[in-house]
Design a protein around this nucleic acid. Structure first.
Length: 157
DNA sequence: GCCAACGTTGGC
DNA sequence: GCCAACGTTGGC
């Protein structure tokens, strides 16, 4: 693990019907279990660090877009839901001695005054190249550049 | 609810 | 290792 001086930025997707920025505002802190994609898993396990900034993105929503801000408050650890046969995220192929899936904890930072819709983000030239704006972009945890992160935050004000 | 894009699985 | 079939994601 490499120590960094500056936090990184991420975008994390969630369907608000499953867990929304309002849920996080209420809970103040939550665990981010259930990611079952290897690329996203690698980010969770290897890259997300305490203090990293997160754009909380509502997918499959009306409208879909960035709904709030969060921060990583616990770095990657094994997703124990994968070990529980009764859990909906159970994966019989994840061995507790060699976990396949990882999770982090997030803490609430802010709810944006309004959701910044995907269409608005697409229309902003300074956000060009952002992963979430690419066609067919399905990755649920995406790296975001610091300038893009700051631009989104400024956009919301 | 539709369906395009993408990821995973498994036969060969 | 190829690739067709299948399952999932997520915008619309």
């Amino acid at each position: 693990m490499v120590k960094r001086f500056q936090s990184q930025c991420w975008l994390m997707k969630c369907e608000p019907s499953a867990y929304s920025i309002d849920d996080l505002a209420r809970d103040r802190r939550t665990s981010w279990e259930g990611v079952r994609n290897y690329q996203a898993r690698n980010f969770l396990r290897d890259e997300l660090q305490i203090g990293d900034d997160v754009l909380f993105y509502h997918s499959n929503a009306e409208p879909s877009g960035v709904a709030g801000l969060a921060r990583v408050c616990k770095s990657g650890y094994p997703d124990h839901c994968a070990f529980d046969p009764a859990h909906k995220y159970f994966d019989p192929d994840s061995d507790p001695t060699k976990p396949r899936w990882y999770m982090v904890d997030l803490e609430f930072v802010a709810k944006l005054p309004r959701v910044l819709a995907l269409s608005e983000l697409k229309a902003d030239p300074s956000l060009a190249g952002m992963m979430v704006l690419q066609r067919g972009s399905r990755l649920s945890i995406q790296p975001v550049t610091r300038p893009h992160f700051e631009r989104v935050v400024a956009f919301s004000r």
